[in-house]
Design a protein around this nucleic acid. Structure first.
Length: 275
DNA sequence: ATCACGACCTGGAGGC
DNA sequence: TGCCTCCAGGTCGTGA
């Protein structure tokens, strides 16, 4: 579910939590991704801190608190981070509840438990195992055609895998890889090393255009994505290729094709995305 | 080092 | 109604 536009939508929707103070903490006791336990003691130590800012890098949401620490949240496939009234019934698969002491609660829920919740020291942010390996956020000024061109030299993998590799660009997932490749008129199975400088520039623009559109529509919801206030996104209606197998290409009317590339559903237009 | 693949986990959809 | 199989927005460990 949540790729960069969805995580950014969550980030924006949680801004009303800035200024709130962490007052209590509850965890389910169930482990998340890689069977790793939620660091309850580190989270408990944050009680008394105030939320000062909400940031995002790629698909990671960073909640800054006064003092040296921040909270890291990754939504995995099915995670949600929502502001609730403390009186609201707790939804199934809730794993972290942070009481804000003002009648509100920040709740992390994640049915599949592919997500991540952690605490880190901001001064050592770049050393965090999950953040350390990330490439630049596609909205960073350093990301342009030249960056993608240089980065793709000597890479024998497909463009699709290249885009999904968070070490290259942080934030692209399976939906927007397909969307961006369609916009740039590039075939998902094209080898990254074959990208020309002109194509790389088109791809950099295409990634951002796809994200801009999705953001304007509040993100893509298929079944379970919601923002911090529980609102679903409308972007599924506007997708150009993802999930549109058999439907006409929005450029040339050819039926969109679905294939599997490296184990993941891949949508493209066989006419527009010839190479 | 790079790359492809399967595993992780739950729930929903569809077939019988 | 049940039971089975397949599929899903992400990441990471393994082995070639």
């Amino acid at each position: 579910m949540p790729e960069l536009p969805e995580v950014e939508t969550v980030r924006r929707s949680l801004e009303p939590a800035i200024g709130a103070t962490l007052a209590s903490l509850w965890t389910s006791g169930k482990p998340l991704r890689l069977n790793r336990p939620i660091p309850k003691a580190k989270l408990k130590a944050l009680v008394g801190r105030t939320i000062t800012a909400l940031r995002r890098h790629g698909k990671y949401l960073l909640v800054d608190l006064n003092g040296p620490s921040s909270l890291l949240v990754h939504l995995g496939m099915t995670g949600s981070l929502r502001l609730h009234d403390a009186k609201d019934a707790r939804e199934a698969h809730t794993h972290v509840v942070i009481g804000l002491g003002d009648g509100r609660e920040l709740r992390y829920a994640d049915p599949r438990r592919f997500g991540q919740v952690d605490v880190f020291e901001r001064a050592r942010e770049h050393e965090h195992p999950s953040l350390r390996v990330l490439g630049p956020d596609p909205y960073a000024s350093t990301v342009d055609g030249d960056y993608l061109f240089e980065r793709s030299r000597g890479r024998g993998t497909t463009l699709k895998s290249f885009l999904l590799d968070q070490a290259n660009l942080a934030g692209v997932g399976n939906i927007y890889a397909a969307e961006a490749l369609w916009r740039a008129k590039l075939k998902p199975t094209r080898r990254a090393r074959r990208l020309t400088r002109v194509e790389a520039a088109a791809l950099a623009r295409a990634v951002r255009t796809s994200f801009d559109e999705a953001l304007a529509h509040g993100g893509t919801t298929f079944s379970d994505f919601v923002d911090g206030s529980g609102q679903a996104g409308e972007n599924a209606e506007y997708l150009v290729v993802y999930g549109r197998a058999g439907q006409p290409c929005r450029r040339c009317k050819s039926p969109i094709r679905r294939t599997i590339v490296q184990g993941r559903a891949t949508y493209f237009c066989p006419t527009c995305q010839l190479s």
